[in-house]
């Protein structure tokens, strides 16, 4: 593959792979390293890309494998304390709404972190990477039904948590 084409593919996918790494690893530094390593792997293995799948699908598979590998290594390193370097999200909102929204968004962040790995990867690829369900199914080599099921369970969990903690005002 030409270097120019590879650069274009990096350009197109860099943000999504970084966001996927960031949300899965929950550490910016690790996510930056992971993203670099993922694209280095893409570069090294570009000759083995068989065009059986879309290039994006192939990159996501490499990314998820690498992220899970990094998570395993990190768990060993931090002695089962993966949230040691937990990221904090800062939102610039109007002061009047800041407290309520901050509480809601912090809660959402925790709920999303608490999703099972399968639910989480589907959720991130759907919301952060804006991928259609059929593409997620191809990346994960699962049926569309399984992927949607993971998504529905993830959303049910989010809804239940928000309801139980009265973080959203629902009309009864």
């Amino acid at each position: 593959m030409e270097t120019g084409r590879l650069e274009q593919l990096i350009e197109e996918n860099y943000q999504n792979i970084f966001l996927l790494s960031l949300k899965m690893l929950k550490n910016r530094e690790d996510a930056e390293d992971a993203t670099q390593d993922i694209f280095l792997k893409v570069y090294e293995n570009i000759s083995s890309f068989r065009h059986e799948a879309k290039f994006t699908t192939w990159i996501y598979r490499i990314a998820l494998n690498h992220i899970y590998y990094m998570n395993t290594q990190r768990l060993k390193m931090y002695n089962n304390q993966p949230n040691k370097h937990e990221i904090r999200t800062e939102h610039n909102e109007d002061p009047a709404d800041v407290l309520v929204e901050k509480e809601l968004f912090n809660a959402l962040e925790k709920i999303i972190d608490g999703l099972s790995p399968k639910q989480k990867e589907v959720f991130i690829m759907r919301y952060y990477n804006q991928l259609p369900f059929k593409d997620i199914a191809k990346i994960l080599k699962k049926s569309l039904g399984t992927v949607k099921s993971n998504y529905f369970f993830a959303m049910q969990k989010i809804k239940n948590e928000l309801e139980q903690n009265q973080l959203l005002e629902f009309q009864e």
Partner: peptide, 28 residues
């Protein structure tokens, strides 16, 4: 309820993405 949950989730994700600037990749 679902409309509100999904809307809030989308807002949260949009804010979360905006809060995390993507590192430059020219060095790669």
């Amino acid at each position: 309820k679902w409309r509100k949950v999904l809307q809030t989730t989308e807002q949260f994700v949009a804010g979360d993405i905006a809060a995390h600037s993507v590192p430059p990749h020219a060095h790669i």
